[in-house]
């Protein structure tokens, strides 16, 4: 049903009936309205206000103008946390989506045991954000962990992957890539939606498998790729548990796993710099919003919508 159609029907209704519907809608939406005001929008406005203050919960907030934002410009740990987060997001999300797409393509189309493989690949997505798996990761990549034992079979000398600042972030990226199952299931559903007549027409015209992939499968999948990209980017920016557990809450070694959200937690809830943490929260909102908008803008150039129907 089109939005315009909805609008027209609203206008066409007699006033009394409209008032009755308004009243009913208001009652059904009442919990949501209260939540929106008190839990979402209210705190958003409040955190903008707090970002211009110094506030430690114990004494009332003191207005300090743009001090917090100026401080953010000079805060080396903040810059480090941005570098860490951007590296994490822009390396692990493309790898994760690439793997998800590759396995979806292998699994697609008349393969026996599909349900089994799909489950096996999907399970890590459910576990990936838990503390238990983060603890396990700490062991796997530890000095005498599984990875080093496996490397030992090939005669390669292992190392403490998590205690080495060069590789610590990489272990968290591997953890994110490990959860490729959820986007893979979405890709699988997307592949099913591609009408088989396109492939039939292409093979009649003599297109080989590779050409069919580049000229049918990939273009038809771009909306799904776009959707997964937005979802995984926003999700990855908000990762917290993994870096908190693996680094014991410090973001170490030498801030190499200091996610932005972890630094925000340290500032707000360990140091009680609530004003500064609010300013950081708004920077996060601006970054996530900007990235999403850039993505939507860029999508005009690479996302293909099949408007035949």
């Amino acid at each position: 049903m089109s939005a315009l159609g909805e609008l027209r029907r609203v206008k066409g209704q007699p006033a009394a009936k409209q008032r009755k519907q308004n009243k009913a809608a208001f009652l059904f939406l009442l919990p949501w309205f209260i939540g929106l005001a008190l839990i979402t929008v209210g705190p958003m406005v409040a955190s903008l206000a707090l970002s211009f203050t110094r506030y430690n919960l114990l004494s009332p907030p003191r207005f300090t103008g743009i001090d917090n934002y100026v401080r953010m410009l000079e805060d080396d740990r903040l810059h480090q946390s941005l570098v860490v987060t951007f590296q994490y997001v822009f390396i692990s999300v493309p790898l994760q989506l690439g793997l998800a797409l590759a396995l979806a393509l292998v699994l697609d189309r008349g393969l026996r045991g599909l349900a089994f493989y799909r489950s096996a690949f999907y399970l890590p997505s459910l576990l990936g954000s838990s503390v238990a798996i983060a603890i396990l990761w700490r062991q796997i990549f530890g000095v005498d962990g599984l990875v080093n034992i496996a490397l030992g079979w090939f005669g390669i000398e292992g190392q403490g992957w998590i205690s080495n600042p060069e590789t610590a972030l990489g272990t968290l990226m591997v953890l994110n890539v490990w959860t490729f199952g959820a986007p893979m299931v979405i890709f699988l559903a997307g592949l099913r939606q591609i009408p088989s007549m396109y492939y039939e027409a292409a093979s009649v015209d003599g297109a080989n498998r590779r050409q069919q992939f580049w000229h049918i499968t990939l273009p038809m999948l771009t909306p799904i790729i776009f959707f997964n990209l937005i979802l995984q980017l926003i999700g990855a920016f908000q990762s917290f548990t993994q870096s908190f557990i693996v680094s014991g809450g410090t973001g170490g070694p030498v801030d190499s796993t200091l996610f932005y959200t972890l630094y925000l937690y340290q500032q707000g809830f360990a140091n009680l710099n609530m004003g500064y943490a609010s300013a950081m929260a708004w920077l996060l909102l601006v970054i996530v919003a900007a990235l999403t908008m850039i993505n939507f803008w860029a999508s005009k150039y690479w996302v293909f919508y099949d408007d035949q129907d």
Partner: peptide, 14 residues
């Protein structure tokens, strides 16, 4: 799409 981190500080205060 709103990250929870944006509202967590005032929520905590509340």
């Amino acid at each position: 799409m709103l990250p929870i981190h944006v509202i967590i500080v005032p929520q905590y205060v509340l």
